[in-house]
Amino acid sequence: MNDPIAPPALRPVRGAAHCAVAAFALSGATWLVRALWQLRLAASGVPAAGPPDQGDGRHRPLTALEDSYHLVSRLGDAATALCVIAFLAWLLNARDNARTLSGKPPRYALPWVYVGWIVPVANLWVPRGIVADIHRRCAPGERLPRAVNWWWGLWLAGTLSGVGLMYTGSTDQVIARTYTDVPMLLVADAAVIGAAAAGIFVVRALTAAQQRHINGSAGNDTTTGTTD
C-alpha cells in the first residue's frame, strides 16, 4: 500500500488550495442553477407531446426551456470536471507535503489517489482515508475536522442516490424525471451542493494545518541554525 520512493520536497500548497476552493464554489453554483432549472421544468408541466424521449429511438423537438436545461447541464458537467482536476491537484500536493513533514510514507499508494474514487466498494472509504491520513500526518494529535465527515457523507449521498453525480442516463431522461419525480432530483442536487460547500472547508482546514506545520518546521530550522 505504501510508496517505496523517497519523500519529495515540500510544495507550495496555498495556490492549489485557492484553485480547489474556487472550483468547489463554481461547481456548487452550477448545481444550484441546475436545481433551479429542474424546478422550472417541473412547474411548467409535461408538454402535450410528452417527454423528449418518445421511446424506440424517437425524440421530439425540445422546448426552449428543455433546450436551456441541456446547456445548464453541460456547464454543470464541465464545472464538475474542473473541480475534480483542481481537487486532485491540491490533494497530490498536500499528500506529498504530508509525507515529507511526517517522514513516513502515505497509508495509500499513489494509484489510489485516482482509482480510489471509481473502484467499487473501495470508493466507499479510500478517498476519505487519503484525506484523513494527510491530516493525521500534518496535525498529529489533532481531531479530524468535522467538515471531512460532512463532505464525505454528502458526497456519497450525491453519488449513490441514482440521480446525482454518477447518474448515467441522458439529459432527456433527467428532463423526463423532472416532470414525474423532481423531489428525488432536488435531494441529489442538495447533496452535491452540500458536498461542494463542505469540500471548501476541508481544503481550507487541511491547508491551514499543513501550513502551520510547515511554518513550525521552518521556525525550528531557523532556530537551530542560529544556535549553531
Rank of each mutant, 00 (worst) to 15 (best):
A81W: 10
A81I: 15
L82P: 01
L82F: 12
V84I: 15
I85C: 06
I85Q: 03
A86T: 03
F87Y: 12
L88H: 10
A89N: 05
A89H: 05
A89Q: 12
L92C: 11
L92A: 10
L92R: 14
D96F: 12
N97G: 04
A98T: 11
A98P: 06
A98Q: 10
T100D: 00
K104D: 10
K104Q: 15
P106K: 03
P106H: 04
R107A: 08
R107M: 14
R107C: 06
Y108H: 12
A109Y: 12
L110R: 10
P111I: 13
P111F: 08
W112I: 02
V113A: 11
Y114M: 14
V115R: 11
V115M: 12
W117M: 05
V119R: 01
V119F: 10
V119D: 06
V121N: 00
V121G: 00
N123I: 12
W125K: 00
W125E: 02
V126F: 02
G129I: 13
G129V: 14
I130K: 03
I130M: 05
V131L: 14
A132P: 03
I134L: 03
I134W: 05
R136H: 09
R136C: 09
R137V: 14
C138M: 12
A139I: 15
A139E: 08
P140T: 11
P140G: 06
G141L: 13
G141E: 13
A147H: 08
A147M: 10
V148A: 02
N149G: 05
N149A: 13
W150F: 09
W150H: 12
W151S: 05
